[in-house]
Design a protein around this nucleic acid. Structure first.
Lengths: 214, 214
DNA sequence: TGTACATCAGTGAACGCGCGTTCACTGATGTAC
DNA sequence: TGTACATCAGTGAACGCGCGTTCACTGATGTAC
């Protein structure tokens, strides 16, 4: 009687269920919001709608999150974890220190943006009450760190080297822009029809091969 | 029939009042929304608030715009005009075909993003009901065209050359990413502390100097 | 030039809506003895 | 093991709010004759 028989009840996996009353409502809310952001764009989500999708009352989310902003931050945090993992997996799939490893990090980044454009935009668009979120800033640094590490290994220099930092930032700018342009104009800009991979390898090579600036 | 911007009826100066009833409400609404977007982020605007700022009733905007989406599109359209003008001015300030002209186009882009981060984000974040806005797509192509033209002049090739298109897109990705990262993390990412200008010149050189790909 | 009329940019009141959040509550679960 | 109690994740009703949009209207401006 307590559970609505018509509710899908979701149960994403069989494992962690049965934690408490509902299961893991927190994770389910985050998944619901992720979905909403993906289909209706950032700001196209509401606490009520997320609760509805998770099959709970509109007040339930407030047992897990202080307010709507905290839910969004949760989504972003989770997304950044996945983004970082993807970047690291990309690097790990190629010889340590190779140019291909650097390019694979960028490829993972672009792939993520393409797979979840709404969330990707959200991650880099949180501006309203979220500036003072040190955990998110730290995770951003963590993602950047993956790039830095790959570049350092490729150049055979320590990660603290200013030139490594500079080139890593250049590469990041580049990949970031490519990712955004790709999801913004899926139809147009035929110039982007260069294969991602060649594109990233070529550009990475160009940036890494730059003579060190005075 | 939309108003012709070159119509003599429109008072173009800073004292536009008394032209008609209100003056040029359309332009004032767009300015108000631009301001709102800048201070409260994209989606942080409302028709009511814009009307309030323009000093008119909440129904007045509907004499000039079909709905809230059309107002946003107006803001974006106006912003793209200004962005393109800035890019063209950047190129024109340096010898035709010079590397500096290319870099100046990028600098104008970054400057715009820094001066109006909210609007900049809006321009590249319109996603909900706006896909079918051919005028905006055309203006985007126009901005890209400025990059293409500068690159073509620099390489001494026609704008239609595939290599020109490719390098222009590379540069655009790069500058676009740099612009976004700059406004997203004003505080952090010390690596970005390379001077913009050196940064853009260096990168432009690297990309333009790439051996043509097979 | 004066008059009659059409146009059109504004008003202001009203509407229904969904939202974010609070509140007292309930009943299942965990735990101490 | 049984019982009493604390905890805590949920409910469901309610609230006030601002929003987008509509409507009939008004009165200033433009225009034909």
């Amino acid at each position: 009687m307590s559970t609505d028989p018509s509710a899908p009840q979701v149960t994403p996996t069989v494992t962690p269920k049965a934690a408490y009353h509902h299961g893991d409502l927190r994770a389910q809310l985050i998944a619901a919001v992720r979905d909403l952001v993906e289909t209706h764009g950032p700001d196209g989500f509401s606490v009520s709608e997320a609760a509805r999708r998770a099959g709970v009352s509109s007040a339930a989310p407030y047992k897990h999150f202080k307010d709507r902003h905290e839910i969004l931050r949760g989504v972003v945090s989770e997304a950044m974890d996945r983004l970082r993992a993807a970047m690291e997996a990309g690097a790990a799939a190629h010889p340590h220190g190779s140019l291909e490893a650097v390019a694979a990090v960028g490829q993972a980044y672009v792939d993520f943006a393409r797979a979840e454009p709404g969330v990707f935009r959200l991650v880099f668009g949180l501006t309203e009450g979220h500036e003072n979120a040190p955990d998110l800033l730290a995770k951003g640094e963590g993602c950047f760190g993956v790039v830095v590490k790959a570049v350092a290994a490729c150049l055979g220099l320590p990660t603290s080297d200013p030139d490594v930092q500079r080139r890593a930032y250049m590469l990041w700018s580049f990949v970031h822009g490519h990712a955004f342009l790709t999801i913004d104009m899926k139809h147009k800009v035929a110039a982007a029809r260069i294969g991602d991979w060649d594109y990233l390898v070529t550009t990475s090579r160009a940036i890494l091969a730059l003579a060190a600036r005075a």
